[in-house]
């Protein structure tokens, strides 16, 4: 039979020799291997003190974006909810009132916007579906919680800080990648 790769090894069926049957040599060999691991570098990252760097394409917790003037970009079109394969996103739309132009960019906005982080699979399809560039996935992940309810993130949890009034937090939330 022709082999697909050159990695295949034929199984040895011949009986073991005396030294092999003693096992002692192979045991000592194995013990030397484990002993050598004592001096190897540990790949462990001690989590709360050290944090692993995320890759630039990491898809983490969602953020609802604002424009340069600090207005919410989301218009509650529902395309993200449609695109979501896990059906994690729900929203309720509302009409912008007089005098709210500096809060919402368009005439329609999301009064309620919830993402269930237990359902979300962090695929990033919402980010791709959004025509207004309002939602994107950041480089953090959902922290542990005691209740299921705590994993349903509402608008307050998702919205990015205002770049005009709270520039520091905004920059932090944007991260290096933006």
């Amino acid at each position: 039979m022709q082999t697909l790769t050159n990695k295949a090894l034929a199984v040895q069926r011949q009986p073991m020799t005396f030294w092999e049957r003693l096992y002692l040599i192979n045991i000592i060999k194995g013990m030397m291997i484990t002993f050598s691991h004592m001096f190897k570098k540990q790949p462990t990252i001690r989590y709360p003190e050290q944090k692993r760097e995320f890759s630039p394409v990491f898809r983490g917790l969602h953020v609802l974006n604002r424009d340069e003037e600090g207005r919410e970009r989301c218009t509650a079109c529902g395309l993200c909810a449609v695109a979501c394969p896990a059906e994690a996103i729900t929203m309720e739309a509302a009409e912008r009132m007089e005098g709210e132009e500096n809060i919402y960019r368009e005439e329609k906005y999301a009064a309620k916007y919830e993402i269930n982080m237990l359902r979300c699979i962090f695929c990033g399809l919402c980010e791709e579906a959004c025509p207004k560039d309002a939602i994107y996935l950041s480089e953090t992940f959902a922290p542990a919680n005691y209740t299921r309810k705590g994993f349903i993130y509402d608008k307050n949890d998702l919205l990015i800080p205002n770049p005009l009034t709270n520039a520091n937090d905004y920059a932090k939330a944007k991260g290096v990648q933006a």
Binding site: T34, F35, H37, M38, K40, K41, Q42, P43, T44, R46
Partner: peptide
């Protein structure tokens, strides 16, 4: 056990 398995 940890050190032999490259853990802290």
């Amino acid at each position: 056990a940890a050190i032999l398995q490259d853990r802290p």
